[in-house]
């Protein structure tokens, strides 16, 4: 810091004198804030709140689970069908499952009189 800063220093000193005149008396935090257990108490409250929240969450989840009527056997995994299975049945999928026949028109929509390729196979 150079001696040229005396102008700023004097301004700041003036400000400091004003602030010091208004400085409140020195007091330490009250006994309630100084209590050594206050932090522990806060942590305990926080832990209890978190535990209550977790308990509520599990209770709600438990209550929302669909109930099976009594006596109904549980469906085994191999028998179970997903409710969205129908989405896999795309149009024209039967073409991939059948063997094409010579001389048979595949587009059944165009010529309804022609025999169905699947029926042909059955024969």
């Amino acid at each position: 810091m150079s001696s040229n800063d005396n102008d700023l220093r004097s301004l700041f000193e003036e400000l400091r004198r004003e602030d010091e005149a208004r400085t409140p008396a020195f007091t330490l935090p009250g006994p309630s804030r100084m209590a050594p257990g206050s932090r522990l108490g806060r942590l305990a409250v926080l832990a209890a709140s978190l535990a209550a929240l977790a308990a509520c969450f599990f209770l709600v989840r438990l209550m929302r689970q669909p109930e099976r009527p009594p006596g109904t056997p549980a469906v085994s995994l191999t028998e179970w069908k997903a409710p969205t299975d129908f989405l896999l049945e795309t149009p024209g999928r039967e073409v991939l499952r059948t063997v094409p026949a010579i001389g048979v028109w595949q587009d059944r929509g165009q010529d309804p009189k022609r025999p169905h390729p699947e029926k042909q196979l059955q024969r």
Partner: peptide, 25 residues
């Protein structure tokens, strides 16, 4: 002067304000 200084310092960046206060004040 003090009011003018407070206003002037308030327009500086936080770091500038802090270092000037700590050194001069």
């Amino acid at each position: 002067n003090a009011t003018a200084l407070r206003k002037a310092v308030a327009s500086l960046s936080t770091r500038q304000r802090e270092v000037l206060h700590l050194v001069f004040y």
